[in-house]
Design a protein around this nucleic acid. Structure first.
Lengths: 205, 205, 205, 205
DNA sequence: AATGAATGAGCATTCATTCAT
DNA sequence: CATGAATGAATGCTCATTCAT
């Protein structure tokens, strides 16, 4: 389905180096990080980037997919935990931990750059939806919170922290805690707007 | 100190038109909105942009300062309200309302591009700090929440909503409500990390 | 309809310099002449090329249109000459003279890069068609020759000469003469294939 | 003298496949056909192309040589025909038929990329010169036409036809007929320029 | 003061060619 | 020998910024 051929050893190493370098570069300079800088950071020639990823957008998509898949795996594991509240908190912790920097790209911002991204995102969203549903059933979180709510709030801790000039690397934990407290039934006040639909339907073939 | 000369009438009109056009353009297309488009939207020549703002970044800074000043005025007003909790909530509502779109960039992202920005930001932060202190004193919010916490969380509702493809214009209210519930004493769990310092001291000359 | 504004004096000078430089460069190195080289040859910056012609193709189109219009003017003049055979010969001479070098670009090769090109070409073709029709009526050329035939053969002398390493500048006259003799009734043998249609209809609005 | 070693069987097969693939690709997309596409079409790796032909230009030269040799063989055969006029016409027909598409580039355009090309071209030119001389002697063509004239005019039919958008595959026959009529004594008018010298002497070592 | 023409650094992308596997 | 991964020069084009009009 994806590339059938297993890739030569050195090529695989380069591909990984590129993904890592690109993730760092995108994290530091946003979407306008240049391909040349990414190549330099990965220690390869500019042309090599395009051998592996036909387009800058494809490179971005590959990073996004990688991240989302890794996160989905974590979520799948946690689906079988007994305590749904702890499971959801652990999931959000893993998500925030993935990058303590400005990973703004890894949600919708990457757009529907490729059907593969859409597919992967849909899968991840479904997993989160299940995690949230379980927590709701166990009354660990308030009944008016949906999966979409959590999906949207998930990145807020990292975002918020990105504005602190020399932030300690774990500062996001503070804001995850505050937001998570907002999800608990204890402090619940009626919500002034219905939740959005993020279209979790499976539109993939 | 800063503007030495009161600016001719037409020049002032141009300056305002430019600020408005730039704000719209940045809101629609993000930071990569082109100076040429801004000039066209303002109905002036490209050169005029640079007569008023030496640099694209200076233009951005001017917008940021405008916004922060307007918000500071709102905050100052609310400092005298009786109910500190309501006052803080109203302030956050005003902040989120200012733009439901992507000029969340108006905090640190504009960097310390000019001492004027720094000065204005410091002033705004101090106001917010007071609002939060009053709410804390009235036990309307939990005791472990600082001004810096609120400053950081303030933009999260807009950020979060920016990932919803065709978001209804008031959706941010939902997430402000959730986050605000997280600030209330009712659901408070111990916070895992001390609050950051945003250096509210007045470092300007 | 086209650019309504009359263009500043220096801008017009640059535009002309660019057209001339581009024509030379295209003539020497074919379509893959680089915009950078054209700019250098015209003595302007690279950006200036794109201010005047949004696209390399637009630049090419402008040249083509210029040439075709000039040629059309010659043809229009000759439509009123008494001796249609001489008129046609003079027209073909003017066409070949326009560039003794590889002007391969100035016919279909530029494709229908813009409706303006199409329009201009249609006009030129119609003029040629009239010239040919008159010559045919006067029995100066064979009856089985159409306007399309002449249009196609028109560039052959230049093409043919382009393969002579250090061709004398008037060598094309020799081949125009030979081909023109082929158009005369005297040596006519039946033609083995019907003439093509070049769609001389006026499809423009 | 040139190929020192008789080439292994599979290598020879690859070489032929490459020549065929390259000829097709050049015909379809012109000189800017990419080596990668040629390799893919031939079913070999890109590196293999360069093992056989040190340079893209060398590959082009090899094709040119192939074509010129094939055409020379046809010409040699026709040298013994009784009717020199028919022989010449048949030769030109064969030449035009070789490809009705855009490998008219196979004359000078390939330049003197290698001495081998020069040598082959010289041989072909000599053959054509003989064919023309015989026709001239038999008064089948006008006395002021030289071998060089025919060599140059030879590709005109293909060239001319290349500007007809969806040309029927045999359209070139029409223009060959017209040009050939121009070579006949019947319509001959004095030629305005002496014939060029194409240096048919054998300058190769 | 306002304009918009000119500039050139910077960008994503292509491709002939080289070289490790 | 064959492969295809790596390379980097070159290209068309954009855009913040400068400057002549």
């Amino acid at each position: 389905m994806t590339p059938p051929r297993p890739l030569r050893a050195d090529a695989a190493r380069n591909r990984d180096a590129l993904l890592a370098a690109a993730a760092d570069e995108f994290a530091e300079r946003g979407l306008e990080a240049s391909v040349a800088d990414i190549a330099r950071r990965a220690g390869v020639g500019k042309g090599t980037v395009f051998r592996h990823f036909a387009t800058k957008d494809d490179l971005l998509a590959a990073i996004v997919i990688d991240r989302m898949d890794a996160l989905d795996a974590v979520g799948q594991d946690l689906l079988t935990a007994d305590d749904a509240a702890t499971a959801l908190h652990e999931f959000l912790t893993a998500a925030a931990h993935q990058r303590q920097q400005r990973d703004l790209s890894f949600l919708q911002s990457a757009g529907d750059v490729s059907p593969e991204v859409t597919r992967t995102r849909t899968r991840l969203y479904a997993t989160i939806d299940h995690l949230v549903a379980r927590a709701r059933t166990q009354k660990a979180i308030r009944p008016d919170i949906t999966g979409a709510d959590v999906i949207l709030l998930m990145c807020a801790p990292n975002y918020v922290v990105s504005y602190v000039p020399e932030a300690p690397p774990d500062l996001w934990q503070r804001y995850l805690a505050i937001i998570f407290d907002g999800l608990r039934p204890a402090a619940a006040h009626p919500l002034p707007h219905p939740p959005p639909s993020l279209d979790l339907s499976d539109t993939a073939t």
